[in-house]
Design a protein around this nucleic acid. Structure first.
Lengths: 187, 187
DNA sequence: GTCTATACGATGATAGAC
DNA sequence: GTCTATCATCGTATAGAC
C-alpha cells in the first residue's frame, strides 16, 4: 500500500479535530464536505475513505469533542471544589466566549445535537450524566450540579448572541460570581 | 390591483409567524425558501415579493419572535416577583422543552443569532438588555437577573440535547427549584 | 489514499405569464 | 401577488485514474 494504516488514522484524527473546530465556529451543517477536507489540505473526494457519510462524521465529531472537553477531564479525575471553581472561571471568560472553535462543544453544537438522531443524543446524555455525577460528588448536591451545567452553557449562549463586549462582560461576570458563590456556600 | 395591500401585509405576517416556528423547530438555515412558502400555501417564487433576501427574513423573524416572546411581555409590564416565578416555571417545563416551534426563540435560534451579522445581534442585545432591566427592577438584583436568564436558556438547551425524558426532567426540576428558591431569597 | 470529473438534487434568486 | 420555468451555485456522494 502506498499509504500506511498509521497515515490513514492520522488523517482521520486531523479531520475530526479540524471539523470539530470548524463546526463549533460556523455550524456543522453549514460547512460542506469540501470545506472540511480543504481545511486539512485535502479535496472533497477523499472524505469518503474515512467516513461513510457526513452524518457519521458528525456523530464522531460530537464524540471526540465531548471526550476532549476540559469539562470532561474534570469528571474523570475526582476534582476538588477549588479545581472545579478555577475551571468554571475559565469557562465563563471572554476568551472562551470569543473562541468558540477551541471551546466547549455544548453551546455551539447543542442545537444541532438536539436535532440529531437518537444515537448522537444518547452519546450527549451519557456524557452529561457522567459529568453531572462527578460534579454532584464534588459538590454533594445533585441539583446544584445540573444548575451549574445549565448556567455555564446558558451564559455562553446568551453572551455570544450579544453585539457588544460591554454587555457580554456583564453576563459573564454575573454568572462567574454566582458560580463562585454557589461553590463556597454548599457542603 | 388584484390583491389589496391588506392582503400583502397579512401574507407577510403569516410568513413571519410560520417561518419563526419552522426555524425554531428545524433551524433557519436548514429550511429552504420553498419550504417556508409552502408552509403557508404558496410557492417559492412569491417569496421575493415580501423580502429582498432570505437573510432579511431572518432579521425580521428574530425581531418578531423576540417581540412576541412571553418573556418579553413580562418585561413591558412591571411584573411582580410572583408573576415572574409563574412564568419561569412554565418556561422550565417539559411542555416547553418538547415544543420548540411555539416556545422561546433564544435556545433554538441562539446559535444562528450568534453567527449572524451585527444588526441581528444588536436587535438581540437590545431586547436582552430590556429584559434584564425589567427583571432587575423586579428582583432588585442586577446580577441575579442575568443569572436567571442564562439559567433558563441553558437548561432548555441542555435538556433538548438529552435522549431520555427521565434525565430531561432532572435538569428542568433542578433549574425550576433553583429559580424558585432564588426568587424568594432576594429582596 | 487522494485526486479529478461527474452525477444528481437542493439551494437562493430572477424573469415573465397571468 | 402568485405562479411556473429557469439560472447559477452549491450540496452530498460516487467512479475511475493515479
Amino acid at each position: 500500500m502506498r499509504y500506511s494504516n498509521e497515515h490513514k488514522q492520522q488523517t482521520r484524527e486531523r479531520l475530526l479535530s479540524s471539523s470539530g473546530a470548524l463546526a463549533k465556529r460556523g455550524g456543522f451543517s453549514s460547512t460542506g464536505v469540501a470545506g472540511l477536507m480543504k481545511a486539512i489540505g485535502l479535496t472533497g473526494g477523499a472524505f469518503y475513505n474515512h467516513f461513510p457519510s457526513k452524518d457519521d462524521l458528525f456523530t464522531e465529531v460530537v464524540r471526540q469533542e465531548l471526550h476532549n472537553s476540559p469539562l470532561a477531564r474534570l469528571a474523570t479525575q475526582g476534582a476538588s471544589r477549588e479545581r472545579l471553581g478555577r475551571c468554571l472561571q475559565q469557562y465563563l471568560s471572554l476568551a472562551h466566549l470569543h473562541n468558540a472553535e477551541s471551546g466547549c462543544p455544548l453551546p455551539p453544537l447543542g442545537v444541532e445535537i438536539a436535532r440529531a438522531a437518537a444515537p448522537v443524543r444518547e452519546e450527549a446524555e451519557h456524557w452529561l450524566v457522567d459529568l453531572h455525577q462527578a460534579w454532584s460528588a464534588t459538590l454533594e448536591d445533585d441539583q446544584l450540579a445540573w444548575v451549574l451545567i445549565s448556567q455555564c452553557v446558558g451564559a455562553l449562549m446568551v453572551g455570544r448572541m450579544l453585539a457588544t463586549e460591554h454587555v457580554q462582560s456583564q453576563v459573564l461576570d454575573a454568572s462567574r460570581q454566582f458560580v463562585e458563590k454557589a461553590l463556597h456556600e454548599v457542603g
